[in-house]
């Protein structure tokens, strides 16, 4: 059996947060009697990730995704539990480990703001001790793949958000890391730029067999890149499996699109009408009822066309986020 690249076992992170009521009285009281509260950002989560896997790490804001990524990258010490990545314990911050990983945060800029990105690239070459030949090959490859020819010569502050993100990702991968932690890499970008970054990540994964753990609120990122998703909420692991399984398990409804010869027919008794677009009606039907409703529609009405579709992945994820209980307590 292949040894997992990332091994997480009962990982927990608790923050101790000061708190007090509002108002002057409470402010004065807090001078002598300070109150603290434990907040479990990550609560006993476990998973393994195999070499070359691209895994979507999903959860609503405050679910514990970034905290987990920070523990995996060695920025935070876990309160309890065990983590190993590439055989290293991240919080020991071995240089050999740091050279093999990268953490890209969508809203962060690690490039030199006033200088062209080429200078930041050169700096990374020195910091990561990349052999000159390999550095030039990788740099030129990334410039071509991400279409950066003109961008890398402009001061970073003159780049748009999307352009900056492309350059940022290129800079973060120059050392050819084996493990990529990507935290919202496409946040705030237009769809074209998102697609470009997605295809670049997929290409990097293919060429270098890198392991990728990706968080994103854009389901298009997840659908395009991840066969497997891990869902956490309130620090608990809610789901770990394929995207198809997630949909099958949590999608309570399907949508049926019907085109009729007679547009005056009332379809409300077959399901919830979601939209009517000239002669086409879209119905929302409980998943278990779908075969029966479909059969009835075909039998009762002059149907010209009928399609049954899975719900949008966004809707499924929203439903998963509505769950509070951990995986084992949820109905299968």
């Amino acid at each position: 059996m292949v040894k997992p690249v990332i091994h997480v076992d009962q990982l927990t992170k608790t923050y101790v947060i000061p708190e007090r009521e509002g108002g002057l009285k409470a402010a004065l009281r807090s001078l002598v009697h300070r109150k603290w509260r434990d907040v479990k950002a990550v609560d006993h989560i476990s998973f393994d990730i195999q070499p070359g896997e691209v895994v979507g790490f999903l959860g609503p804001n405050g679910a514990g995704k970034t905290t987990t990524l920070k523990m995996l990258s060695g920025l935070l010490h876990p309160t309890s539990g065990e983590v190993t990545v590439l055989g290293f314990v991240p919080q020991r911050r071995d240089k050999a480990y740091l050279k093999q990983i990268t953490l890209v945060m969508g809203n962060r800029n690690q490039l030199q703001w006033d200088l062209p990105a080429l200078d930041s690239f050169e700096l990374n070459r020195a910091i990561y001790r990349i052999p000159t030949r390999q550095f030039r090959e990788t740099r030129d490859e990334f410039i071509e793949l991400l279409d950066l020819q003109d961008l890398v010569r402009k001061p970073v502050r003159n780049l748009s958000l999307g352009e900056r993100m492309k350059v940022e990702i290129a800079a973060s991968l120059l050392q050819r890391p084996q493990v990529l932690y990507l935290d919202e890499p496409t946040i705030g970008l237009d769809v074209t730029m998102q697609a470009r970054i997605r295809s670049f990540i997929a290409e990097y994964n293919r060429r270098h067999d890198a392991t990728v753990l990706l968080t994103s609120h854009y389901m298009a990122d997840v659908e395009a890149l991840c066969k497997r998703v891990i869902v956490i909420h309130h620090g608990h692991l809610l789901f770990d499996g394929s995207l198809a399984d997630l949909v099958a398990r949590f999608a309570a409804f399907k949508t049926i699109g019907v085109t009729l010869e007679d547009t005056s027919a009332d379809l409300s008794r077959y399901g919830e009408i979601m939209s009517v677009d000239s002669d086409r009606v879209t119905l929302r039907v409980p998943k278990t009822e779908t075969p029966r409703v479909t059969a009835r529609l075909l039998a009762d009405l002059p149907v010209m066309d009928l399609t049954v579709e899975e719900p949008l992945i966004e809707d499924v994820i929203r439903q998963v986020f509505a769950q509070e209980a951990p995986l084992e307590e949820l109905p299968a």
Partner: peptide, 10 residues
């Protein structure tokens, strides 16, 4: 977050 970025360098 600049310090996090600094800590991630080897």
């Amino acid at each position: 977050g600049q310090f996090s970025a600094m800590l991630l360098r080897p």
